[in-house]
Amino acid sequence: MSQSAIFKKPVMYVASGLLLASMTMATLTAHRLDEMRPQATLMDVIYIQSPRAVKVMSLGYTGLAACVYWTRAVQYFGEKHVLRSKRLDLLPKLLDLTVSLDPHLLPAYEFGAIFLAQKPPEGAGMPDEAVKLVERGIRANPDYWKLYYSLGFIHFIERKDYKAAEKAFDEGSKIPGAHPWMKVMAAAMAARAGDIESARFLWTQIYEGSDDKWIRRNALSRLIALRVDDDVIHLDKMVQGYVKKTGSSPSSWQNLVAMGWLQGAPLDPAGEPYELQPGGRVVVHDISKFPFIEHGIPEGENRSEFIGPAADKVLEKPGIAPK
């Protein structure tokens, strides 16, 4: 039998058939095992708590191990997010392990901080942990200005600490290669003014700077909320102007149209008219469409931190995203 004829031996047919069949079955079984395991193994436990132990166990392949932990952190966050869990106790530890293994894994600081800082369920609600993480990142990567940006962002948006935010933006702006708007942000923080404008600027940068679906969705939702805030403040001013002029509150948008201040009932980003309540309060029609808004919250409702299905619909509206 020559070398090429071996392929025609019965044992080769049997073996190749077995190989195909059993590999297919093994793949299916592996898939099933994956499905079974969220209950079985994805428990809220990290077995090895010490970064040093993990370093030793990764046999020097700390970069690879860091990637593994980062993936785990993202998965953990994603899973909790889907379950709308309000407790993400393991997230700081997973991020800690990740950056201990690889202190230069920048996405772990940038996105990890956002995961940590935001209020549940969109984040872990741990802005102080987030600040610690980013400050650690800055110590390890002092030349990377975007980390200062993340730091300023958390101080400003989540902690409302304008002084710390100003310091972060200012220090970041001094790093060679830093984007010029870091200076603009520092100045805005110093003036303690332009709250909405600065926030809009920051969220726009995040929206445009990321490819990640979750981050873009979140940023867009924030931008829409800022638009609502802006609208409501503006409309409130108009109502106050009307009161000053006529001595009584307007009973409907028609009063303001008659004054020539509006062309019709003003529409919110979802395309529905803002409601003018008796007493002159301006509110949105449906709070569930606008998470994160600070102004225009109807009586008896709370500010929402969750991007639900109604809010998702608004995000999908054509033309809603910044150009």
């Binding site: 073996a15 077995l18 059993s22 079984t29 592996a30």
Partner: peptide, 11 residues
Amino acid sequence: YALFYATAALS
């Protein structure tokens, strides 16, 4: 899984 994977590797 072990049965099938080992069979595949042996084949």
